[in-house]
Computed example of a mutant assay.
Amino acid sequence: MDQDKPWALISELGEGVYTEDITDIMKQHFHLISHKEFLQNPQLQGPKIQALFLWNACPDAEPSLLTSLPLLKVVANGGVGIDHLDVPYINSLGVKVTNTPGVVSDATADMAMGLLLASARKIVEGHRVATDPNTFSVPEGMMGVEVTGSTMGIIGMGDIGLKIARRARGFEMKILYHNRNRRSPEDEASVGASYCQNIDDLLRQSDFVVLAVNLSPETRGLISHRQLSLMKPTSTLVNISRGLVVDQDALVQALRSGMIRAAALDVTYPEPLPRDHPLLGLPNVLITPHIGTDTYTTTRKMVQLMVENAVAAVKGLPIPNEVRPK
């Protein structure tokens, strides 16, 4: 019976990302309770819950929630980034933390290339022109920039960065990369990438700078006034990592002044931006609402991995993707 399964807390049921086919994956192993249901009687429900499933950082794994779940064994995060989680604190409660690396890489790399192409070729602006009933010809300012044969600089050459490079190679792009650790000669050769030990060299040479790093104290504010000033005035910044990797005030200034040509962002801080934020009013910015992993195929893979991690933690088995404090 469903009540005999371990209990798991999720943000919602039957809406948003947790559609019926997705929750069916979870229901094979867990009795699910939504955060809304939980809040109606936390004293009764809390002692039953052994797993907490997080999607888009919801529900918030704050101390007041975690301490109300005395039997909790695992916080299973959907996605790779865990910057919204205090892993040492959660571990101090005897609770494991997991994420879903690998399965998000293809969709995120696709998103990076989609943003790059849409920005370079003004696809969104073109759509607006083509569907405007009062426009009968292509207006001035629709000239884009060439992608094929240009130079891409990738900052963060993990699994996602490597997949972005593979896609860029299909556009005959010259690929530069900067990473904390240099990739193997075989990896470099497979995508034709050249390593830049100094990030400044990459910024000076690239037509498109793509950010694919994890958020950490070292990468927070990685791109600010100085870094933007090194980029070409014809260059584009593409960010599919985390909003806090970029100093947004510096980015606004760079875009307004013509220091760089454009920015294409799937991530900002906060998310969503306040409706009066200056980034939203700039014509040379393309923003999407952190949907880099939002495909049906990838979402199902992520949820399946979340469940596998949670089942292992509840049963005391080796966890496929445990996140440990650094």
Rank of each mutant, 00 (worst) to 15 (best):
L265D: 09
L13K: 12
S105R: 11
A250E: 02
S229W: 08
S235E: 09
I155A: 09
G14I: 01
K36D: 07
W55T: 04
E271D: 04
R204W: 11
P274G: 02
M143C: 05
R220V: 06
I25H: 02
A57I: 11
L222P: 07
V285P: 12
S190K: 13
A193L: 14
G170M: 08
I160E: 02
Y296N: 13
S229D: 14
L72S: 02
I160W: 05
G141Y: 03
A254S: 08
R169L: 14
D207S: 06
L32A: 06
L65N: 02
P185C: 05
E271P: 02
S229I: 10
H31A: 09
R275Y: 08
K73N: 03
R121N: 04
A168S: 14
S241W: 08
T151G: 07
N198I: 14
L32N: 00
R220N: 12
V17L: 15
V104C: 11
G292K: 04
G14P: 03
D106T: 13
I240P: 07
L93D: 05
T67Y: 08
G79A: 11
Y296H: 13
P6S: 01
E186G: 13
E271V: 03
A8C: 05
D83A: 12
G170E: 09
L317R: 12
T297I: 04
G316E: 00
Y89V: 00
S11W: 14
F208H: 13
I223F: 08
N198S: 15
L244K: 15
G114R: 09
L244P: 14
K163G: 07
L251E: 09
A107Y: 04
R128H: 14
R204S: 13
A8D: 00
D249M: 00
K326Y: 13
I175A: 11
S190M: 14
T268R: 09
S194A: 15
E188R: 10
I33T: 02
L71P: 05
D24Y: 00
N134T: 14
W55R: 13
A262D: 11
L251R: 12
V314N: 00
T268K: 04
L222G: 02
A8Y: 00
L255M: 06
P325T: 12
R261F: 06
E322M: 10
T19F: 00
A130K: 13
D86S: 05
I287Y: 05
V246W: 08
T219S: 11
L305V: 02
G192T: 10
I175H: 10
N198W: 11
Q40H: 12
V246T: 09
G126Q: 10
G81Q: 13
L255K: 07
Q304H: 04
L305W: 00
D249F: 01
M231V: 07
V104R: 02
A51L: 03
D207W: 10
H290V: 08
R204I: 15
P101I: 03
Y296K: 13
L52T: 06
E12V: 09
Q227R: 13
N99C: 12
G292D: 01
R242Q: 07
M152A: 15
